[in-house]
């Protein structure tokens, strides 16, 4: 038998050598399979956990140990999870809007003007985005909890930093700072490719420079704007560090999904099935966004990569 197996292997090897396409194809499927498995299995595992009744949690296999789809409803009755999602969405959307507007101005300047120090300044921006958030968490925390005295006015008293803790600003400000550099970089690449003539035409036709930026340059850079926007939104939505530390975790204090998930952890028991169900629900907005925008993201990322 081993002889014929050896023959089969030899046959397969010789076929592959004469026709390398087969090998590439096989490798492609293997790699894709591994990749899909590693990315999708956690979601499957979440689903299994979510469907398993809380009492059967001890003994979970590859299939749910029981069938309890009510968990997907219970997540909303036990805690106002939809409000946590809403907080996340609001913070994500507002941050994205701020980043896009500010990064557009920066991208316009970087992409369409030649000025001294342009490259170094760009590098500084990009470097900032790679700072570990933990490095400035403590100073920021003190700043946002009104613990920093800016100056003392005689007769009035001290002027302290504003109290942003437990508010959206405490998250949106650091997010904007952290995620804007990448958006600036993407938009710079795109805006620099819009021909000068179009901007000139818009200005002669009656736009100011800002008008030309928002009515001509931005629409023509739609893939770039979409890419920057989606990447920013996903980054904000996924962010854990500031979301966890800049609020006390109550939903009325702008706590995000992170806190929503943690709230299924009671003092005596942790409802893993509810946590899993909530996690799946929390992923849905991003999944929808990526499916809708993926074409633009891909074209945006690659066209940005090919030019410059």
């Amino acid at each position: 038998m081993s002889n014929s197996e050896g023959n089969a292997l030899q046959r397969w090897a010789s076929r592959s050598i004469s026709n390398p396409e087969r090998t590439y194809k096989a490798l492609f499927y293997v790699l894709t399979g591994v990749f899909l498995f590693t990315t999708l299995f956690p979601f499957y595992w979440l689903l299994v956990l979510a469907l398993t009744p809380s009492g059967n949690m001890i003994d979970v296999g590859l299939l749910p140990n029981g069938f309890n789809p009510e968990a997907f409803v219970t997540v909303f009755t036990r805690v106002p999870f939809h409000l946590y999602i809403l907080n996340s969405l609001i913070i994500g959307v507002v941050t994205t809007a701020i980043v896009l507007v500010l990064a557009s101005f920066a991208g316009y300047a970087f992409g369409r003007f030649e000025f001294p120090g342009r490259r170094p300044l760009m590098l500084v921006f990009l470097a900032i985005s790679y700072f570990p958030p933990a490095a400035f968490l403590l100073p920021l925390f003190r700043l946002f909890t009104a613990n920093i005295t800016f100056f003392t006015l005689p007769g009035v008293g001290t002027v302290n930093s504003p109290m942003l803790f437990n508010g959206p600003g405490a998250m949106m400000l650091p997010y904007t700072a952290l995620f804007m550099p990448l958006a600036i970089f993407i938009l710079t690449t795109f805006y620099s490719q819009i021909p000068d003539g179009l901007e000139d035409a818009a200005r002669v036709e009656g736009n100011t420079r800002f008008g030309a930026l928002f009515k001509v340059i931005m629409p023509l850079s739609a893939p770039g704007v979409a890419t920057a926007g989606v990447l920013t939104f996903i980054s904000v939505y996924n962010e854990f560090f500031f979301a966890f530390l800049m609020t006390d975790g109550r939903v009325q204090n702008w706590a995000t999904i992170v806190w929503g998930l943690l709230s299924y952890q009671g003092r005596y028991a942790t409802s893993y099935n509810l946590m899993a169900a909530a996690s799946i629900l929390g992923v849905i907005p991003i999944a929808i966004l990526v499916v809708v925008a993926q074409e633009k993201i891909v074209s945006g990322l690659t066209s940005g990569a090919l030019k410059e």
Binding site: P195, G197, L198, D200, A201, A202, V204, E205, V216, L220
Partner: peptide, 11 residues
């Protein structure tokens, strides 16, 4: 009003 060499219609 201006007419440009590269035409510059808004695409």
């Amino acid at each position: 009003a201006m007419v440009f060499q590269n035409i510059a219609l808004f695409p």
